[in-house]
Design a binder for these strands. Structure first.
Lengths: 217, 217
DNA sequence: GCTGACATGTAACCCGTTACATGATTCC
DNA sequence: GGAATCATGTAACGGGTTACATGTCAGC
């Protein structure tokens, strides 16, 4: 349902082709959404049928003709209504966390490998976002202007950066946590169980609390 | 694709009915996945056809008969293969961030309202997770045992808590950021633009950097 | 000569959601 | 009497992904 509004939102700023829209989704908007050209084109047709957007054909030389879409008043109204409506917290789908949840089935080495590998992936994403921030800020400095548009996109960019940084930090801390309780993997083989006292400290350190009651505020 | 492995993962620990599986997804596993009974039942049939799980009917008095599923050796193998495979970083879909991205279309009041409203939603989720952590820890203390199973589920729980805390913090900081640049909304009406100097400080404060070059490490 | 950017689409398929359908028991 | 819990499913629909299909031009 959000794809529709993402497209209306973009067309509320500029006229664009399906191809242009895809590039925005792949670039900055990839922080919060992604889609495919094969989804965009039918959706554009649908929105045009609903009179929320309209199009004109632009012939080009050396390149294929393109269909330039623009938003209508009805489309703007629809967009504003969605923007004002409170949005529910999305149901996350994080397959890496699902893997992690069942990783007690793996050997200690495999667990650590998976965590370190995933951390690297997240680090690569963080670098890309930092690059985006740098470019955006340079663009602002050149143009010497700052608008509410740039304010809100900076907020989204900050969220993207935070998210990556936090995931990386969690990977690091979880690696330490797992390593500090390494011996649990050996116990498992002998069908034995660790006692609480040996674990308590590592647990509190990992959760950054002093004791249990701290959670009850 | 991950639902399959979530179900296999659960059945690798206990025998369960479709109904039991749904409860797990609604409870702890909601940190990283969610699904519906109407998706679980057909998926169970499919997995049984593929010989990854098998079932037996359990007649009950006072309650409907139930179909208790258990994992097969082939199912275990399939699960372990998935666990060992590196997982790609998921493509996020965050409709609130999408809204935020286009919120320059709203009035300052509406922007602040949306941010504050969403923050409250996240705070409610955080409280629920803290409760889960408290309960899990109490259970561990009672049983006086700690296993790799509990270790990995603690890691996932920690990630859930961090995520909520970080989102809440981002909401707070973004509210401050928006408020500190309040006057941009008034400029917009007069088709004017703010100059860079007036904005630079607020921007650096929000992104927690000293200057631009700090991003280039 | 090949890859990638530009440009638009269709078709098949899979996954996920909502609605429909049934029926007993327990608790308020 | 009504809602919630236990328990299993089907059907319709909508959203998202992969594969297929076509064609030009620029740069390596």
């Amino acid at each position: 349902m959000s794809l529709k509004y993402g497209m209306l939102g973009l067309l509320s700023k500029w006229e664009a082709t399906g191809y242009d829209i895809k590039k925005e989704f792949d670039d900055f908007m990839s922080i919060f959404w992604h889609t495919h050209l094969s989804q965009i084109y039918p959706e554009l047709s649908k929105l045009e049928k609903e009179k929320l957007i309209e199009s004109k054909m632009i012939p080009q030389n050396g390149k294929p003709d393109k269909k330039l879409y623009s938003i209508t008043d009805a489309g703007r109204k629809e967009l504003y209504q969605w923007l004002e409506a409170p949005s529910e917290t999305p149901n996350v789908k994080d397959s890496f966390l699902m893997q992690t949840f069942f990783m007690d089935n793996l050997s200690l080495e495999d667990v650590l490998f998976q965590l370190k590998h995933y951390q690297k992936q997240r680090e690569a994403r963080l670098e890309k976002l930092k690059q985006t921030l740098y470019e955006q800020w340079q663009m602002i400095k050149e143009k010497n202007e700052f608008s509410t548009r740039l304010l809100m996109s900076s907020a989204v960019l900050k969220r993207g950066l935070d998210q990556e940084e936090e995931y990386i930090l969690w990977c690091k801390r979880t690696i330490e946590f797992v390593e500090s309780l390494e011996y649990l993997w050996n116990l498992e083989e002998s069908n034995d169980c660790a006692t609480i006292n040996e674990v308590e400290e590592a647990f509190y350190r990992y959760f950054e609390v002093e004791d249990l009651d701290e959670l009850k505020n």
